[in-house]
Design a protein around this nucleic acid. Structure first.
Lengths: 373, 373
DNA sequence: TTGCTTTGAGAGAACGTTCTCTCGAAGTGG
DNA sequence: CCACTTCGAGAGAACGTTCTCTCAAAGCAA
């Protein structure tokens, strides 16, 4: 009683042996005829292929993988695919993978190191030939190193790590933030707030510093931290006061939490006249908080957001944002990965894709628009 | 010269045989100790596990898959992951998969039947244990049937098919559209336009019909077609004129194209006073076109959109939309799939998840707000 | 015809796991 | 002390492919 829903019934998939029997040849010959390797007579080849068609044969790639070692699969590890940034990047990765005849196995880390570790291990056990990962941590990379050691190349997406000799595809987060904040400074703003979705504990020194010293190596931390660095540097350039309470961080990814933090920022006794939002969730949070408080943008509050999502041109006013190219980032990461998979061997390369400050209408001049170096 | 980037170097992964040698036991015993099957002495088990740790052994699941037939992988086939609907649904699928110890292999069909066919075949060759698919066509399902025949269960997402005995997880598209349009009708609108992202050729009869006859079986076509049906039915209920030029269709997915069609709709000699947008891309298109034409919403034009994306509450005015639950749809689809994978056998079930008309401020009354049956 | 190469095809190993079979050792009851 | 069960461990097959080896037959030059 086969219901056809695919559960119990299911007659066995035909194998090479079945085809061989059907065609009246040996397994070896059938294999050669089907796989186009070795030498086979033309007539026999046709006979075998006809038999294969009759049986609806298609090769079991799992068996093939075991024999040859290559699974034609790559892994993707991102924080959360439902985030448009990752969704778009993943799209890029998948497209390139398909061009190479590969498929992608997807994994979410939710930005948790333990989950990421487990995910990488699973992918390794599944014998993927390479992994594109947006790593949770750039210092805790032992699991990624282990992958490389067993011959599975790693490409970092969105973050790069000095602790790992791997290709990475990133944007210049510090510069992007620096430019955005400088833009606000040039408009005359001095009291500029910032909102980012990171755990505060991740870089207490950066947050607490607020206005002293120069920053060290770039690309050493996660994107938002670098963006905070860029913010601080720009503020320093203009001798603008950047007290710790102007930089608010929120837990990862929750829009509601982002709005709450944004609200707290705007509720300061001496509130900022402009805000830089360091990612798309924060951007949404700032926009919502401003509206809830009845602040006109850019009249009462100027803002610059991050990520050029569709909605930034749907709202009123259209938002000035820092745009990064997620599709290209995904594609580039995958291309680097396939170069490695094909055997290319060279030190890890850090590929920096350009960002663009798209000026629209969410930021306006403030006070005397003085310009300084 | 191992650079560590994971290309050439890579010493071979240790196997059970390696562990056995290290522990001084037979392969069979090592296998039992590691896999927790059969009988092993406690001391030996410890010895083997210690050896495994020393070598950094972890099982090759490809080999395991070949032996046992189960790959612990499922496939996902969607039109385009960068579309928020699919991204969110996929997230749900992945979450449930992980709960069951499975991973998902991702594939985009771009709404092209040939691509979908190829994708399903690849997944089958990769021996996935089940597939969640948002099918391009609901009549052309031979490839899905074949999957079922070889024992791979199929769950349809977002669309259901009478030509296939499989579970499906959908919303009641016709009713959702009917409710939305009725809402507009109750507000007094009679000249109501509709915009959907489908190829017009897909249902010339539906589009051309415009106002006669009753619709046949539900769920027989793709979502947008059912939504058009719902629109037509509601218009009929109120004896409102639904001429063919009020229903515009655009090619799949392009926001720019959607905006152009929306603009054409609004440029009619006798333009609609309200528009129902049948998907999130169309919603964006209508909103953009209205703004470009300087039409106030809801003053000059009322609208109801589809999909409750973040941005619908960020714009001014916040949009009245039909909300569907993509995360739940993904989760439910995966749960159905795993029930099948675990062996449950019963006729295909059509699960209809509830939609909600979220009334916000993008639709207002028009003329004498008359109510009829 | 002899000796050589080329061609086509089969036998069988290998990949790394799981699992059945077998068999000796140890334990137990009468 | 013997028959009988239980336990622990090894040998080896199996999954479906690929690929090496072997070998017979055929082709060809001397």
């Amino acid at each position: 009683m086969a219901t056809g829903t695919g559960t119990g019934g299911g007659r066995r998939r035909p194998t090479v042996a079945d085809v061989a029997r059907e065609a009246g040849v040996s397994v070896a010959t059938a294999g050669r005829a089907l796989g186009d390797y070795g030498r086979v007579g033309d007539d026999l080849r046709d006979r075998v292929k006809a038999a294969a068609d009759r049986l609806g044969y298609s090769p079991n790639v799992v068996a093939r993988s075991m024999r040859s070692g290559g699974t034609h699969s790559i892994g993707f590890v991102g924080a959360d695919i439902s985030n448009p940034f990752f969704a778009t990047a993943l799209r890029g990765v998948c497209d390139v993978a398909r061009e190479h005849g590969y498929e992608a196995i997807l994994t979410n880390s939710d930005d948790r190191l333990d989950v990421e570790r487990a995910a990488v291990q699973v992918l390794l056990d599944k014998q993927v030939e390479g992994i594109v990962v947006a790593p949770t941590s750039v210092t805790d990379v032992d699991h990624l190193k282990r992958a490389q050691e067993v011959g599975v190349p790693i490409v970092l997406l969105d973050r790069s790590s000095s602790a790992l000799d791997a290709d990475s595809v990133v944007i210049d987060n510090e510069m992007a933030a620096h430019d955005a904040v400088t833009y606000l400074l040039n408009l005359g703003h001095r009291r500029i707030g910032m909102l980012a979705c990171v755990d505060v504990e991740e870089s207490p020194e950066v947050v607490a510093r607020a206005g002293t010293g120069r920053l060290q190596a770039r690309g050493a931390a996660r994107p938002s931290i670098d963006r905070i660095r860029g913010y601080l540097a720009a503020m320093d350039d203009y001798l603008a006061p950047s007290s710790a309470d102007l930089v608010r961080c929120t837990g990862l990814g929750s829009p509601a939490q982002a709005e709450r933090e944004a609200d707290a920022l705007l509720a300061l006794a001496q509130p900022p006249t402009a805000v830089f939002a360091a990612d798309n969730v924060a951007t949404q949070g700032v926009f919502r908080a401003a509206r809830r408080r009845g602040l006109a943008i850019p009249g009462d509050l100027s803002m610059v957001g991050f990520d050029d999502l569709d909605w930034t041109t749907l709202v009123d006013p259209p938002l000035t944002v820092v745009a990064q190219p997620p599709l290209d980032m995904g594609r580039t990461a995958a291309e680097q990965l396939f170069a490695r998979i094909k055997g290319e061997d060279r030190p890890g390369e850090r590929i920096v894709l350009p960002t663009e400050l798209i000026v629209r209408s969410s930021a306006a001049g403030h006070g005397a628009q003085k310009r300084s170096a």
